[in-house]
Nucleic acid binder design. Structure first.
Lengths: 118, 118, 118, 118
DNA sequence: GTGGTCTAGACCACA
DNA sequence: GTGGTCTAGACCACA
């Protein structure tokens, strides 16, 4: 699994991993039901402690992105649509929040639109 | 000065204060040249340690948002336009980054536009 | 034999199998003296390692629920009443423990009764 | 904080701690908004590694029982009623599930009632 | 081999 | 002092 980590970033490593895996799911690079690397395996690949991977996997499981089946391995959830929808929704609402901030500062919708890559 | 703090957020308190003051400047609620509260005063108002306010003010001064005149007090910079421009630019580039992410996930520009409050 | 397994549950697979067979006995779906599937056969049916079935059968035999007659096969015990009684007793005492917890939290017996399907 | 741990139990230590704190909240021994011991402090008291307490606190926070305010400490949530309700509901539905199992086994409601401490 | 738990302890930013 | 992150590594049950 191809994941780039930034050790300087404020975002903790385990959350970077969470974000990357969510991204790979949204991009259909990871498919529903697909098995993902074992904790220790990914730890080796990324040069990171297994506990850190575990924390990322725990977070992903609590968000319904993956399911871990003890002794069997860890798998992408069968219904990926919810994950995608949630991700898109959160990005969209982030953007809308920021558009609102720009309007508060005094830019009108036309000015804003001009500066967006749309 | 009306500033809401979130003690649970990952963003440190002093940075939240920085962001809020920049926002108030951008909104013209704080005017160029206007005096802002003394460190101890604001510390009391917000129920926060004076060191935290100090750190926020230092950051704001290094960004050219405020100027502290030793015994006279602390003031909003006279030329507020740079502050505003910087803030707007950073928000705009944030948004464009997220638009790109949405495109990567598979939404085209039309779909994205439909969901933005523009 | 119709047994549903939950690979995510904390309860180990072999214990789930034990519980399910005890349940089938208590429900008279498995009758006294009846032969049950061979280890390898059940392993295939459930898509599980034969060692896991072995462990479940061993446990059931130690509890007197089944008897394995070497070359002949494995059978439900002739006197099923003890199995049932033990099972009922353990469920009842589970419930009573939980009733006590509800009382400790502050519900009185009347309130509790109202919410039970009795 | 008075918490008894059972190192033999199948339930992991961190979950025992979670359960105990939920219980103390339900019993009003821990009040809304009240500060609870620092991670390292409770670790010392219970003779357990700080990471274990952290995991318990993380779980409690994800369930909305406590709120951790970085550098300030950890606190019981302000609105405890939801926590209580959820706890009671889950116990009640556990009991009802078991009552149903007893009925499936062949006991009628009268027989069951007789054996419950109600 | 696989996930799950736990200890020991370091280091960090922040307040 | 307080929570948060991370490493290193052991041990366990289960499959």
């Amino acid at each position: 699994m191809n994941i780039a980590l930034d050790y300087q970033a404020r975002v903790p490593i385990y959350e970077q991993i969470v974000g990357e895996i969510e991204r790979l799911v949204a991009l259909n690079i990871l498919s529903p039901g697909e098995q993902i690397p074992a904790i220790r395996e990914l730890a080796l690949t990324l040069g990171v402690n297994p506990n850190t991977i575990k924390k990322a996997y725990d977070t992903l499981e609590s968000r319904g992105v993956i399911i871990s089946k003890s002794t069997k391995g860890t798998f992408i959830t069968d219904d990926v649509s919810v994950v995608k929808k949630t991700l898109v929704d959160s990005i969209v609402s982030d953007i809308n929040e920021k558009i609102e901030r720009l309007e508060n500062i005094g830019l009108d919708k036309k000015e804003i639109s001009k500066r967006l890559k749309l």
